[in-house]
Simulated assay, not measured.
Amino acid sequence: MTASRLTGRRVTGGPVGSGSPAEVTLEDGTTVMVKRGDGPGAVRAEAAGLRWLGAARAVRVPEVLGYDEWSLVSERVPTGAAGPGAATRFGRALAALHASGAPAFGAAPPDGPEEAYIGRAPMRNVRGDDWPSWYAEHRVLPYLRSAVDAGTVRPGEAGVIEAVCERLPALAGPAEPPARLHGDLWQGNVLWGTDGEVRVIDPAAHGGHRETDLAMLRLFGCPYLAELLGGYEEASPLADGWQGRVGAHQLFPLLVHAALFGRGYAEQALSVARATLAG
C-alpha cells in the first residue's frame, strides 16, 4: 500500500473513494490523503510547492507526510462551512504569503522542477525579470498555441489575445516585485477547515504577480470574496486600477482550461481579451 510505504505506518482503513485523492487511515488513527500525480515531475512540483508556501508561515497548507515520483501522502483537512471571518483572515494571510516573495518571475520553489504542472496541463517555470514580457511568453502564449492546436481557439481569433500580450507593458500597472504565488488558486483548492481557518492545496507555485492569484479566485468564484479582498487590502493595498487588470490576469487560467476542456473557456478568454483591450 502506497500510504504505508511512504509514511512507514501500517494502513488500517480505506481507501475511501475510488479515485485520486483517496482517504486512508493509518495505524495510529490518522487519516491521510493519497494522491496520484498528473505526470512526470508533478508530485515533486506539488510537494516542493507546499513546502515553499508553508515556509512563509502565512497561508496554511496540509503537511506532506511522504511522496515519491508518482504519489503524495498528505495530512487530511476536516472541512466545514465558509465564513466571513475566516475569509478576512485568509485575505490577510494571502497578502503575507505574496509579500514573502520569490527570486524572480517564473522561479520554481526550492527543489521544484522547471517542468511542472497546473492541474493536468504542463507548466514551465522559466525565470524572467520583467512581468509583462514573462507573463506573455511563458503563461499566456503557450496555452494560446495549445488551444489553437486543439481547435478550441480558431486561428483567426488568436490575434485579440496576442494584442493583449503586446499591450501588457501599458496595461500591467505599476511594477511590483515577484510574489510567492499559489498559482492555481480557484475555490476547489481552498479548504475551509472546521477549526475556522483556511488551508490551500494543489499549488502550481511559482514567482509571479500577486494580482494573478486574486484574479483566479474571482474567476472561478470564492465564498465571501469581498471579505477576503477586504482583509487582503487591509494588510497590503493593491495598486490603483487593479480592478481593470483582472481580465489580463485571468487569461492564463482561462487558456489553460480552453486547452484542456474546450470551446466554452476559449470563448470566455476571447471575451475577457476584448474587454481588456477596450479598457
Rank of each mutant, 00 (worst) to 15 (best):
A215G: 01
Y265E: 11
R92D: 03
V140G: 09
T276Q: 12
G156R: 14
A170K: 05
G188E: 12
A121R: 12
E233P: 06
D202I: 00
G80F: 01
A275D: 15
G112F: 07
G159K: 09
P109V: 00
G39T: 15
F261W: 14
S20K: 09
A3I: 11
A58T: 06
S20F: 05
A275M: 07
A273G: 07
H249Q: 10
Y117G: 08
V64Q: 09
A259K: 11
V32Q: 01
G244L: 05
P78V: 05
G106T: 10
G183R: 04
A96Y: 02
G66A: 05
Y265N: 07
G39A: 13
A158V: 08
L171W: 02
L270V: 05
R9V: 13
E46A: 15
A175P: 13
G231S: 04
R274T: 13
Q268T: 14
P203F: 07
A158I: 11
A278N: 08
G37H: 09
R44M: 13
L94R: 09
V32T: 02
V24R: 01
Q187F: 07
R167H: 13
G66N: 01
E197K: 03
G193C: 07
V126G: 00
A121F: 01
A47Q: 13
P177A: 15
Y232G: 04
Y265D: 07
P174G: 15
P40M: 13
A215F: 06
A226W: 01
L94E: 12
L72Y: 03
G37F: 04
R167W: 00
M33W: 06
R218D: 14
T2Q: 11
Y232A: 07
D195A: 02
A259M: 13
G188R: 09
A158L: 10
T12G: 02
E69A: 15
A87G: 00
V153Q: 08
Y135K: 07
V73M: 06
A278I: 02
L277Y: 06
R9I: 11
I161S: 06
G159N: 11
N189M: 09
R51M: 10
A248S: 06
G91R: 01
P110E: 15
G208L: 03
G231M: 05
S100P: 08
L141H: 12
E114M: 10
V272D: 00
